[in-house]
């Protein structure tokens, strides 16, 4: 049974210039112990989708659809119950740890807040647990570090501290929104490997939002590709990367350097990323797609099974060339 079930999620922001459909009918599930990647370019709605799960969006966001957590709908449950799930069972790690951490509280106290809210441990036990957590995420001399403030940590160490805070109540699901985008590549590598080790050791599930296909390929079990607020394709990383069934996924993979010979011309996707404040009738990718047909511009393609555990919303799925392994 899946731990998290998102069905037909829609998020509309009301702005002075009219409604913006940031997430437009997204459905996916996350199984226990699974790592799901959500990938897309800027404005694809990937971060908004992630934040909508534990209801972390601002008041100007209208959210519809259901988000079932262990069978219970997070969006209709009483606030009291939601608070217990949020931070307790579902924890979130954000992209920019400096703005997500409280700059005037020592790291130890920020861990302690979570432990106070979600556990019955006494003061001494909470302190022991905080030291243990910092050690778990690879922060050296954790006892000293507990009393330090975020500004005394480096970028990588702040993200480790964020993860320690998220792990404090032993959540079953960790939501990570571009957790390594602000970090250098060797530090990104350390953080991703840390997350994978935690998933394996603690039996936790992970939803990782990123724009980097490489991060998805090396970190996730399954991937969901988003474009203009919609889900293009979901499936195992192996299948989606080797046999993409959506023209956008296909084009995105083909545009990456390293596909052809050195200094060969890359294959860019023509046109501009879509404006989500101007929704299209058919497939949002149609204006940039080289496999476009009439139907694509008039009727929105449904997300259907194209193979076992592999869904795609593309009329051209069967016509896409097979990628060389």
């Amino acid at each position: 049974m899946s731990l998290l079930d998102v069905v037909d999620l829609r998020v509309t922001f009301s702005t002075p210039r009219g409604p913006v459909h940031a997430v437009d009918g997204v459905s996916f599930c996350v199984a226990s112990g699974e790592v799901l990647g959500i990938v897309g370019e800027s404005g694809s709605g990937k971060s908004v989708t992630l934040r909508a799960i534990p209801k972390l969006l601002h008041a100007n966001a209208a959210v519809t659809g259901t988000v079932r957590w262990r069978g219970a709908d997070l969006h209709t449950m009483p606030a009291e119950d939601l608070r217990r799930v949020r931070g307790g069972q579902i924890a979130t790690v954000f992209q920019e740890p400096m703005s997500a951490l409280n700059p005037v509280l020592p790291i130890g106290l920020q861990i302690d807040e979570v432990l106070t809210a979600h556990t019955t441990l006494d003061t001494a036990a909470r302190r022991r647990r905080a030291v243990e957590l910092l050690g778990l995420v690879g922060i050296a001399s954790p006892t000293t570090r507990l009393d330090q403030f975020p500004h005394e940590f480096s970028g990588g160490m702040r993200q480790r501290a964020m993860i320690a805070i998220a792990l404090a109540a032993a959540p079953a699901l960790l939501l990570a929104d571009e957790p390594t985008t602000a970090l250098d590549v060797t530090i990104q590598d350390q953080i991703l490997k840390l997350l994978l080790r935690l998933v394996a050791d603690l039996g936790m599930s992970l939803v990782l939002v990123t724009h980097d296909l490489g991060v998805i390929a090396e970190t996730c079990d399954r991937v969901a590709v988003m474009y203009a607020g919609r889900l293009c394709e979901t499936g195992s990383v192996h299948n989606v990367f080797l046999r993409p069934q959506h023209a956008y996924t296909h084009a995105l993979l083909r545009s990456m350097p390293g596909e052809g010979a050195a200094r060969a011309m890359l294959v860019p996707i023509p046109g501009q990323p879509p404006r989500i404040d101007r929704p299209t009738a058919g497939c949002a990718f149609a204006p940039r797609c080289s496999f476009v047909e009439d139907l694509c511009t008039t009727t929105r393609p449904p997300l259907i099974d194209v193979a076992p555990q592999h869904r795609s919303a593309c009329y051209a799925a069967a016509r896409l060339p097979v990628r060389a392994a």
């Binding site: 590549v185 990104q188 590598d189 490997k193 991060v215 390929a217 192996h238 993979l253």
Partner: peptide
Amino acid sequence: RAVPQVKPGRRTTEAAVI
């Protein structure tokens, strides 16, 4: 080694450098 490759199936939990 730290750069993630756009090829599935290279998953490890060993960081490239400490």
